[in-house]
Design a protein around this nucleic acid. Sequence first.
RNA 1: CGGGGCGUAGCGCAGCCUGGUAGCGCGUCGGUUUUGGGUACCGAAGGUCGUGGGUUCGAAUCCCGCCGCCCCGACCA
Length: 463
Amino acid sequence: MRLSRYFLPVLKETPAEAQIASHRLMLRSGMIKQSSAGIYSWLPLGFRVLRRVEAIVHEEQIRAGHIPMLMPTLQSADLWRESGRYDAYGPEMLRVRDRHDRDMLYGPTNEEMITDIFRSHVNSYKDLPLTLYHIQWKFRDEIRPRFGVMRGREFYMKDGYNFDIDRDGALHAYNRHMVSYLRTYERMGLQAIPMRADSGPIGGEDTHEFLVLADTGESEVFYDAAITELRLGDRQVNFDDRSECAAIVEEWTAPYARTDETHDAEAFARIPEARRRKSRGIEVGQIFYFGTKYSEPMGATVTNDKGEKVPVHMGSHGIGVSRLVGALIEANHDENGIIWPEGVTPFHCGIVNLRQGDGETDAACEKLYKTLVQKGLEPLYDDRTERAGAKFATMDLIGLPWRLTVGPRGLAAGKVELTCRRTGQSEDLTPADAVAKVAEIYAPHHAAAHWEPMANRSFHTWL
RNA sequence: CGGGGCGUAGCGCAGCCUGGUAGCGCGUCGGUUUUGGGUACCGAAGGUCGUGGGUUCGAAUCCCGCCGCCCCGACCA
């Protein structure tokens, strides 16, 4: 993309309403524009990041064998009356009425709807296990929206629902989700720690929240530093293997990690003092097992192998996609702006032309641009007739992890400069070497385009 | 929902207390400057001062209502 043809309305000054770094930087870098309290438009740059995050969530869900679909934002109140939540939910639920005076609502979550779909089409244990999910806009009429997209009223969320014949099956689904979530966050360059949590209004027995450590987090968290050493890395997980998933869950839940709601001071005190950590965290996901809480009242039953009708065991699992964009910035920024992890960056590499209009410099930039595109990368070329300082400031603000700087002085020596946004370190390379290095950096992040999910399994899904 | 604050040009703000129909910086547009970390200079455009009412000869300014937004708290993916 050429910056001269893009729409990137960056702000030099910080809008007064933004208190925390991510909100401030998202406004300043032209990622979002507030539409009304807690409701935002995603401008082109923000939209790119949102899509990258969403794509990773999809890929990892599909990898785990979960099936994507899409449910509507507006729901009929009738379904919610069936589950009893229409009255239980309270004023957080946005209720609307259509022209025929039918009660509708803008969905804050989809347990009722998915259960209705399930009971309409699934009758036998032979159709289980089944996990369906979608990524859709939700609305919760928060009393007090704040922190930009981190606590909006409208938010983009992945929510998934598993259906299993019994508790053991559902617990495997629970574990499978935990593993897939760990992979998801890790690919985004985030450390999200699973913590035992309260079940809240969704209700249930088993639940973990995933928290990203950040000073601006809404929850106080207590954990054993040992958990921050854990990595899934590139280990291949067979998501059908119950013991393999359970082992990974065991690995990640063994070290103490809890939010203030479930904090156990005695257990915490038993951790060696050097590893005891108290911090704040941003919740970016949660998984639940809630058994037959919805299937029983809503009649979501299947016939088991003995011919008996039994309610299915369910769980639900959420990842706050739009909130993750804010959380990513909270965890990755400095005084000059955002620092995107490679996995979610809106553009892979910036190109700064220091002398726009100079024939040789322009040509060198064009060539770099084309070569990067040929490698499957998406560069952002700042071809505006701005001074160097303005171009650098913009690049730093929008946070592209790598920047190629091209000017007459460097070119005279046959070199361009490759700079890492995170470390600030630069090296002079020939254009060919610079492109090769950028391509190498991103090679692991392109793997997703080529893999075949669950290729050797009995079932697999495609988006 | 309790407490506090704000609403004046695209953005950030001053002016309000002590009424006399608007000003600064940045940005934008047109020039000059050819600049390696938000350059400098010249010129220009741009505002029914959130909204409705009241007081007054006269209201951005004083009074009342409404709307919107932000902060603290309670609540929350």
